[in-house]
Amino acid sequence: MERRPHIPPLAALHAFMAYARTGGIRRAATALGVDHAVVSRHLRDLEATLGIALRDRGREGGLTPQGQAYHARIAPLLDGLARATADIRGQAPRITLTCSHGIAYHWLLPRLSTFRALHPDVEVMLRPVDSDCRFDPDRIDPTLHADIRYINDRQPAIDQPRVRSLPLARPLVFPVASPACLRRLAHPLRTPADLLHAPLLIEDDDTEWRLWFAAQSVEVERITGHNRLWQAHLALAAARAGEGIALANAYLLENDLHTGQLVRVTTTDMPLHAAGLGTYVLRTTEQTWQARAFVRLRTWLETQFGTEAGQVVTSDHHPARKKRLPTRS
């Protein structure tokens, strides 16, 4: 009979993975929902089985170089085991796709039925969230997780080990408002600088507006005295209610511009330029990146972002005057 190397108990491997992920025995115990003595015992048993020290017992804690090497080898294997178990049970591959509320409600949700029709064997759960997603590359979970996030040009790059990213689109950004709001303006908009005296709708901070004004050759250090909202989704809701002028892109405005509920703001003496101020980025772990179900979703997203948004029809002050708006710079 062929003799195979001894495989450590899964409980010990789970404890080791949790320790590697959290960096501490008590934190690993909390993550697993067990007593810290259980995690400590599993780690001691695993080290005895392997005949090597996995934990760095110095002040910094963490893994020894041998522990890091072992972790890098077994993490994808345990992940594959979890997915193979889900497959043999007949569970459909499930992808949780997180993204901001605006792109979820106004652009992605109406299109997901197309993906489901093409790939009925892949389950996608769309989950709008406000904050950037932090991935856990070591988590053993048959559920695939990916995130779409808009990153403006002044945001620091999101750098996580063993996380892959793909730029999907760099949309053109421009100001919009309701026709009623524009009629109520106290002063006419002749130049881009005149917008500084109009009721601007600002998201969590004024970065996007300052980037846009810089693209119009209007340098401004800080934009104050305007309505501040949490996110683009709320800013557009306020713009529909006639409360002010918001910055947005065609991915967020398809229906509003078709119906004329929001119109593109213009000036009389100088044109306003749509500007690429950031990028929609798809991110996930290296393991998910290679999964067959996610490859299908990733390919579909590239196609949708690259073609469909370019067909959005927009209008300026006069809803009857329509033209095609490019969505890539």
Rank of each mutant, 00 (worst) to 15 (best):
R328N: 08
L50F: 01
Y70T: 02
P5A: 08
H273G: 02
L10I: 15
H226V: 11
A48N: 04
W209N: 01
L144H: 05
F213H: 01
P5F: 09
I151W: 09
I88V: 15
A28C: 12
R222T: 15
T288M: 01
T143R: 05
P188T: 07
V263L: 01
I140D: 03
A20W: 12
E203F: 04
T143N: 04
A84Q: 13
W212Y: 07
A239Q: 00
A237H: 12
G24L: 00
L81E: 06
I7Y: 06
A82H: 10
G90K: 03
R183W: 05
R44A: 10
Q66A: 15
E308L: 14
L297Y: 00
R240T: 13
C181F: 02
L257H: 04
D206S: 10
D132F: 15
N152K: 04
P76L: 06
E60F: 07
L325K: 07
A29I: 01
I52E: 08
A241E: 14
D121G: 06
D56E: 08
E203P: 03
E60Y: 07
A320L: 13
L236K: 13
A72E: 13
V263R: 00
Q216S: 06
S131W: 13
A84K: 09
L195I: 11
P271M: 03
R89T: 06
L172F: 08
W209R: 02
A237T: 14
L126R: 04
V38G: 03
G58Q: 04
E254T: 14
Q287F: 15
I103A: 03
R170Y: 07
D194L: 06
R321H: 12
E286K: 06
P179K: 02
E243P: 05
I25E: 11
T327G: 03
D159E: 14
T314N: 03
N152E: 11
L195R: 03
L144R: 02
P128W: 00
M1I: 12
S217P: 05
L234F: 13
G225T: 02
R83A: 11
A293E: 02
R222D: 07
A157R: 14
A274G: 02
E203D: 13
L63A: 06
Q231F: 12
P156E: 01
V163E: 00
Q68N: 08
W300G: 00
A18P: 01
I88R: 14
A291E: 15
A241D: 13
I158P: 02
R111S: 10
A214F: 09
T288N: 03
V265C: 06
R127K: 10
Y70R: 02
N255T: 14
R21V: 04
V122D: 03
H197M: 07
